[in-house]
Design a protein around this nucleic acid. Structure first.
Length: 411
DNA sequence: TGTCCACTGGAAGGGAGGGCTT
DNA sequence: AAGCCCTCCCTTCCAGTGGACA
């Protein structure tokens, strides 16, 4: 073989024997350990669909990484398998974090049943009513049962209200041939409080809660996947228990456990090691945490970056916490310096709340008596890392070595 | 107990940008 | 071309608020 720059990375003995995507949360294995009960319960509800009847609507609750999405996709796979020799059942999965408008949801469902590309519903332009009518017509063309799984349904409701759920819940009244049932998936137990009572009762005909995995269960999950993907004896015996324990601390998040294991192995591989050990797991943990932060910052819109830069630069000066008023002054200074448009303070408070939700800053409302009531804002990620990511932006790069003129009042 | 500060955060609406229909 | 519709980002307006202080 010729000498290439890749030569040093091509190892004689690999840690991985199979497709490493097996360790990604999106991979659906043939068996889901410790979710048999939930699968059986869902299957018993949905079996009516295979008999041509409408199954009850179901709401699934559980924190991130508790296997809700995996379970529902697993069920979807099983329905597709059963479909070939049973009745006409359609299973649709949609993530409402991606499709988060009522128009988008109806358009996606509708297009699933329109084969002719010319006739497809455009992603904008039509009235919602028209999309709904076309969708209803199309799905009613055949005798069939349609199961629609809406993942992260709380995101849809908080962003666009419950109109689309209202439409979907009462669509069966308008159908002659087809029947529709909805499975809502949420990690927020309280989201039904914001629903119209009719939607709430219709949607929660059945409810299921997915408990977090404990460390022991996470170990089983990791062991199952690693058997598929790793060569024998490449993991030190303590690696899987450590990944499981770390993830169990974070509300039993299987997604986190899998990421930890995959990144640990990749780190070991990159260092030309043939065995993954505990220190690789520790490195993986730090890397994942840092990647989350840099990725979140990199994808922020410019104005949010500018505001975050204001927090970072104020922090650099030694003012750990600052008020909305102070941050706004700093932000205005930075905007003028980079010649970008200045938003109103009202808009800036909203963007600060968004940064807070992303976990990049910590903001809490505090009253200073006669000094007024305001938010106290501080950075909640490492200053150095945040600044480095922000300076990668073309506009904010101009602020390298910039020193603030504005003096904050809160120290 | 009432006042007052510096905001908070809800509501309404403008307008740009995407697209369809007539 | 004009008239719609939808979403997104933003502004304007304003009632409401927690707590120090007189």
């Amino acid at each position: 073989m010729q000498d290439t720059i890749f030569q040093q990375y091509i190892r004689s003995k690999s840690i991985f024997k199979g497709d490493r995507d097996v360790l990604r949360p999106s991979y659906i294995p043939d068996e889901l350990p410790h979710r048999e009960e939930q699968i059986n319960q869902l299957a018993s509800i949905l079996v009516t669909a295979l008999e041509g009847q409408r199954p009850s609507n179901v709401l699934l609750f559980g924190k991130t990484g508790t296997g809700k999405t995996a379970t529902i996709k697993y069920i979807g796979k099983e329905i597709k398998k059963a479909r070939s020799d049973l009745r006409n059942v359609h299973f649709l999965y949609m993530n409402c974090e991606v499709v988060d408008t009522q128009y988008g949801v109806l358009q996606n469902i509708g297009n699933e049943f329109i084969e002719d590309f010319e006739q497809r519903i455009p992603f904008t332009g039509w009235s919602t009513e028209r999309v709904y009518n076309i969708l209803r017509e199309k799905i009613d063309e055949d005798r069939r049962v349609i199961v629609i799984a809406l993942d992260e349904i709380d995101k849809l409701v908080s962003k666009s209200g419950d109109d689309v759920l209202y439409h979907l819940c009462r669509i069966n009244d308008d159908l002659k041939n087809a029947k529709v049932s909805v499975i809502g998936i949420s990690n927020d137990l309280k989201f039904t409080e914001f629903l119209d009572p009719r939607v709430k009762s219709s949607l929660s005909e059945e409810k299921m809660v997915f408990p977090p995995y404990n460390a022991e269960q996470l170990r089983d999950i990791l062991a199952q996947r690693s058997a598929l993907v790793f060569e024998e004896n490449v993991l030190e015996p303590s690696v899987i228990p450590l990944c499981a324990a770390l993830a169990a601390q974070e509300h039993g998040d299987a997604r986190r456990a899998l990421d930890l294991l995959r990144v640990s192995a990749e780190i070991a591989e990159r260092n030309h090691l043939s065995i993954v050990n505990e220190s690789d797991v520790t490195k993986a943990k730090n890397k994942i945490e840092l990647d989350c932060v840099t990725e979140a910052i990199r994808t922020l819109p410019l104005q949010s970056k500018m505001i975050l830069m204001g927090v970072v630069l104020s922090g650099e000066r030694g003012c750990g916490k600052l008020t909305t008023g102070d941050l706004y002054e700093t932000y205005k200074e930075l905007s003028q310096c980079t010649s970008t448009a200045v938003l109103t303070q009202r808009r800036v408070t909203d963007l600060v709340s968004e940064l807070d939700m992303l976990g990049l800053v910590h903001a809490r409302v505090k009253s200073f008596g006669r000094g007024g009531r305001t938010k106290e804002i501080e950075l909640s990620v490492p200053q150095h890392d945040a600044k480095k990511s922000l300076e990668e932006d073309e506009t904010l790069g101009q602020l390298k070595n910039y020193r603030l003129r504005y003096q904050t009042t809160l120290m």
